[in-house]
Design a protein around this nucleic acid. Structure first.
Lengths: 202, 202
DNA sequence: TTATTTATTCGTCAACTGACGACAAACGAA
DNA sequence: TTCGTTTGTCGTCAGTTGACGAATAAATAA
């Protein structure tokens, strides 16, 4: 098998493998899953650490779509539609079992694998959501960016936690993903003015 | 050192140790942290598995206070006060770094370590919250228990996810825990009627 | 003091684990 | 064919790792 093809195959299998077995999964088992000898892995990746890093970069950091930021700010659509569309897609394409497990394993193992890059993206997301909803509602937002972000976490955290319940704890499966998204988005929008008022007045 | 005292000490150290290093942490390192030989561990726990099980039972399953259910249903207090008090305590005493890390490591490793018992407790919690708020507001709730629980998850998930951000991802640290709890509780209560209406009407 | 139990350690086994040197097989170009 | 490059495997090394038999030290009872 040609170099690049094999390498891609290993990365694919490794992603699945480490997501399921944790970052401590053994290279011999991984090789077996790839249908190759353990030794061959080391032709493509100098160390296990390098393989893990590449899996992480490809799967975790590559999961955010720039188009989301554009679509979230498309004011020709009502915010309810934008948020609904975004979180459906986000839940389907990013908050998957594979992504979540890798992300959690990495976060638990290394104190600062997740934060840096992710934090920046998510922060921007949170601020965008707040800005857009506030604009649509003609609401004045408080200054404190930390408070602002915490407000957006009301929605983002609820949906993220739903994904964790679903994929890590394996519960909360009786409603469909779309139903849950719609509910959380509606609840967030319905309580938005109250939330801003409550948070501003302290 | 007497048997029971030593055993208790090992359990304490082991809880901290496995929370930080994952369930795959090595018995030799654990023994060193206890200040004893590795061999001695095996006088108290037949296998590492048994030690892990005991840590899990003591630390994870024992973290829920029965009194919470009583206090949440104390209708002499307004719901805002009850929820605020409950979630402050819950965040402080259960959703700690130690508890969360152990819980996540266990959930990732074993498909059904968390669910069974925890799920039952949390479900009851969610239903209690919904029932009490609905009673205070004089609101009629929809029938579907899954939908009902998902509504309560709006609050419970947001706070749980805040704890994960704080203790696992190590972000969202600029606001105090109490501030965040108060905010989420207020937002939940402010949007409650809207939420129920929105969820009932589908 | 002596006997007996209890607490604790030493040393080791067998299986595992990441890493790698050496060698074989396949393949294509000259 | 021939030769070099690429793809691949075998076997092994050094360091781990859970587990445990046997010996030792300390405490307690007689």
């Amino acid at each position: 098998m040609p170099f690049n093809e094999r390498r891609a195959q290993i990365l694919d299998v490794a992603t699945e493998f480490f997501a399921e077995n944790g970052l401590a999964g053994q290279t011999r088992q991984l090789a077996e899953k790839c249908g190759i000898s353990q030794r061959l892995l080391y032709r493509f990746f100098p160390t296990k650490e390098d393989l893990l890093k590449e899996v992480y970069n490809r799967e975790i950091l590559g999961a955010f779509k720039a188009v989301w930021f554009v679509e979230l700010q498309d004011r020709s659509q009502p915010m309810a539609v934008r948020l609904d569309a975004f979180y459906r897609d986000y839940l389907q394409s990013t908050l998957t079992r594979k992504w979540l497990r890798l992300f959690l394993y990495a976060s638990l193992a290394e104190a600062n694998m997740a934060p840096d890059y992710i934090a920046a993206i998510v922060m921007q997301l949170l601020e965008t959501v707040m800005r857009e909803v506030a604009h649509e509602r003609g609401v004045e937002l408080p200054e404190d960016p930390a408070l602002l972000r915490e407000m957006a976490w009301t929605l983002h955290g609820a949906i993220s936690h739903y994904a964790i319940r679903r994929h890590i704890y394996q519960s909360s499966l009786s409603l469909s993903e779309d139903q849950v998204v719609t509910m959380h988005v509606r609840v967030f929008l319905a309580g938005f003015e109250d939330m801003v008022e409550v948070c501003s007045g302290r």
